[in-house]
């Protein structure tokens, strides 16, 4: 029984870590800010929750499992809010959601410095 749980949690942990890497790859590879947001949301949902499930299966006391659950709840509510805040700020800041090419190399911080 405990071997089965170990294997299950190992699968969850490994898949979650691979999803984290895919998400980081998405943040690097995708062409503009709005598409990168989708890459980032893989880490916030799939990656984070699979890792947490894997850790809950390995938890030895009830309190540890509860704390992992609380981390999950906090991430569940804050991650989409933070994503939406970035997206909305970028939309107001003048990035175009329909034209990835327009969002390249317009570094306002660089412009301010000169």
């Amino acid at each position: 029984m405990s071997l089965a749980i170990d294997i299950l949690s190992g699968i969850c942990l490994f898949t979650g870590a691979v999803l984290m890497i895919i998400s980081a790859l998405g943040v690097i590879r995708l062409p503009d800010l709005f598409t990168r947001l989708h890459g980032a949301s893989i880490a916030d949902t799939g990656g984070a929750f699979l890792l947490l499930i894997g850790m809950v299966l390995q938890a030895d006391t009830f309190l540890v499992a509860i704390k992992l659950g609380l981390i999950g709840i906090v991430l569940f509510f804050t991650a989409p809010t933070a994503s939406h805040a970035v997206a909305h700020a970028a939309l107001i800041g003048g990035l175009s959601p329909d034209d990835p090419k327009a969002n390249q190399g317009k570094d306002e911080a660089e412009e301010d410095r000169t």
């Binding site: 709005f34 947001l37 949301s41 893989i42 509510f77 809010t81 994503s83 939406h84 997206a87």
Partner: peptide, 16 residues
């Protein structure tokens, strides 16, 4: 609803 849209990878709520 907006949070569910954003939480689902592939769709992001831009303005509500």
């Amino acid at each position: 609803f907006a949070n569910s849209i954003t939480l689902t990878p592939g769709t992001v709520a831009l303005a509500v």
